[in-house]
Design a binder for these strands. Sequence first.
DNA 1: CGTAAGATGAAG
DNA 2: TTCATCTTACGG
Length: 196
Amino acid sequence: MYIENLFKREFFINRNALNLAVNLLGHLLIHQTKQGTLIGKIVETEAYLSDDPASHSVIGKTKRNAPMFERGGIAYIYFTYGMHYCFNIVSGNKNMGEAVLIRAIEPIKGIEIMRKNRRKQDIKILTNGPAKLTQAFGINKKYNYHKLNKRPLFIAKNHYKIPKKQIIQTTRIGIKKGTQLPYRFYIKGNSFVSKK
DNA sequence: CGTAAGATGAAG
DNA sequence: TTCATCTTACGG
C-alpha cells in the first residue's frame, strides 16, 4: 500500500539539508521487519550543514561521518553515549557533507512491536527522541549507508500536506556548538515532538 | 597507546 | 542532576 508512494533517490539529492528537513515533516518512515511493518510520521527534524560547527562533517571526512559525504538518500547512523543510535538522512549531492537528523516520529502502525522493542508501554515515549525512535524501529548500524528508496527501510509520501503555518523553525537541542542556528523543525502542537 | 567528549535516555 | 556505557577522533 505505502510501497508505491516511496520517494525516489532524487528527492533527497535535489535539495540541501535545510530544505530536506522541512520537506520530510509529515511524511512516513517505514520499516518492514520479520515481526511486522512499522510506520511512523516524521514530526521533528534537525539539519546539519557542511559549514555548521555542530555537524559531524565540519572536521572533514572520517570513517564515522563518511556516509554524509555520499550522494543524498542514504542513511547515516552513528552510535553515541555507549548505547544509543541516531538516524540521519543524507541530503544533497556527493561530497556535500550534509544530513538531517530525525528527532521524533508519531507512531502510526506496528505500535505493539515498538512497545516490545522499547520495553515501554506509554505510547508517548516510544518515539519522541532520536535514540528512542531508532530503538522502537529496530534501526541500528546495519542500515548505515542503506538507500532509503529501498525496502525494508524507506521514506514514503503522505498525501496529506502539512500547512506551512504548522511548521515551526527554531534552534536545535542537545548540542554544545551552533546552538544559535535555527535548524530545527517540528510540527506545531504534535505531542510526539521531543522535549529538552 | 591514553583519553575525553558525545546530535541521549532513564532514574532519582 | 547524575549516571550508564563505549565508539571515535586526536594527541603523545
